[in-house]
Amino acid sequence: MKCGVVTFPGSNCNHDMIYALGNVLKQEVIELWHKDSDIQNCDLIVLPGGFSYGDYLRSGAIARFSPIMDSIIQHANNGGMVLGICNGFQILCESGLLPGALLHNNQQKFICKNVFLKPSSKTTPITKQLNEEKSFKIPIAHGEGRYFADDKTLKELTKNDQVIFQYCDENGVVSEEVNPNGSCLNIAGISNANKNVFGMMPHPERAVDLLLNNTDGKLIFESLLN
């Protein structure tokens, strides 16, 4: 699959993503700059984590108006795949490609630790090959990751099987005790209704290499890429 990884001013997980997709998962990777308008026929566009535009105004709010975003929105509207990780998820929500918003964590702390994720959707490419009985250990690193949407949107997300990951414990049990940031319904990631745009706060690209003693993230990418 031809994958385009977008760098915005302030992105800092772009090289981890390029390494994960190119070196580990052996995909063709194109480095895209936020001022580009040509996304070079990539099949998958990835918006990596970081602090685009210094998180000024709101996380992702200014990146949403970068020149490349018009092409990405068009790509998504034509059914092309888009994945946003962390700040990339925030940009996708700000752009309207995904519903809801990401608020400051409920305890005002920046959280950097491993969490466990339950794959909640059976029909979305990024989760459909994952063992739903397994919990996936993936790191989070964010200050604004509290997923919020109104009740109507949350009901639609659930009804349409758009919740892709929920925070859970090591045994896959979803509960308030293991919700790291106060997200509605323990949501760690969602897809759009058409199941071609995905956003998640945890960083699977940081869990793909045996050297780091955790390759759960590789399984998530393999589900998406195959």
Partner: peptide, 8 residues
């Protein structure tokens, strides 16, 4: 369009 995200 930019200054306020009316979801939050």
């Amino acid at each position: 369009k930019l200054l306020c995200n009316q979801i939050m």
